[in-house]
């Protein structure tokens, strides 16, 4: 618990998490607002989450990676390892705090998006009733939290901001989608890619054609996809922790 408090003090005593959070909210909720304002027909619940699930997530991943890479950039990671020579507990605490913040941010953006769509387009039916609808909206926080753990792992491994951010953005926004272009094998591979599975978890199925993941032959259930996504994140964190422990700081 002490180390969680330490990481909280560290994170909130600099400005970047505030800026990143504000940017994520503005982008996520803002995109929904623009979509809602531009639509002449009713806005569906699926449309409200494009901003959260496909745009704001990138900012959250960057924020999570920066939380680690700035420590390497300014060598405060060494002060951290002097204070906590076991290293693992300090890094796990950091991943936990960053994941919690990302999760809360995800809920704010997801529900904020639904809210703003309702305000701009009052005639739309945006009630959240079914389990699929709840998963679609409330699930965004879970995806953010797990994605943040992944980003922290990448940050620990790469140790520099530009590299970590490039890897995460290309991976999450471009690479997984491009693999689908490979004839035949592409969609089979995609069924096992982490962010694609995260998207699969969020989809409401046939009700939300706007969401990605269409045409991919997933072998896992939707919750299975989330567990798979989480499993990969934890595996990456474990590798990062082992590397960090062995490496000279």
């Amino acid at each position: 618990m002490t180390l969680l408090a330490v990481e909280r003090i560290k994170l909130f005593s600099t400005r970047s998490p505030y800026w990143c959070s504000a940017l994520a909210i503005v982008l996520g909720v803002g995109l929904t607002a623009i979509i809602a304002a531009a639509s002449e027909e009713q806005v569906s619940l699926g449309l409200t989450q494009i901003g959260s699930a496909q745009l704001a997530i990138a900012v959250v991943l960057v924020m999570a990676a920066i939380a680690v890479t700035t420590e390497y950039r300014f060598n405060t990671i060494r002060s951290t390892f002097l204070a906590v020579p076991g290293r693992t507990s300090a890094l796990v605490a950091k991943a936990t705090v960053v994941a919690l913040i990302a999760g809360v941010l995800g809920e704010i953006i997801a529900f904020g998006s639904v809210g703003i769509a309702k305000v701009i387009s009052p005639s739309s039916d945006l009630a959240i009733n079914s389990a699929a609808e709840w998963r679609h909206v409330a699930g965004v926080g879970l995806v953010y939290a797990i994605g943040a753990v992944m980003a922290v792992a990448v940050g620990i491994l790469v140790r520099q901001t530009a590299g970590a951010v490039a890897i995460l953005l290309v991976w999450q926004m471009i690479a997984e989608g491009l693999i689908g272009i490979i004839p035949k094998a592409g969609i089979k591979i995609q069924a096992w890619l982490p962010f694609t599975n995260a998207t699969h978890f969020l989809t409401m199925g046939a009700d939300s054609p706007e969401q990605g993941g269409a045409g991919i032959d997933f072998k896992l259930s939707q919750w299975g996809s989330l567990a798979y996504f989480a499993g990969i994140a934890i595996a990456m964190l474990v590798v990062a922790l082992i590397v960090a422990k062995r490496r000279d700081a």
Binding site: K10, S13, T14, R15, S16, T70, F74, N75, T76, R78, S79
Partner: peptide, 8 residues
């Protein structure tokens, strides 16, 4: 210099 420049 092992301090974050924007932290008090």
């Amino acid at each position: 210099k092992w301090v974050h420049p924007n932290r008090s």
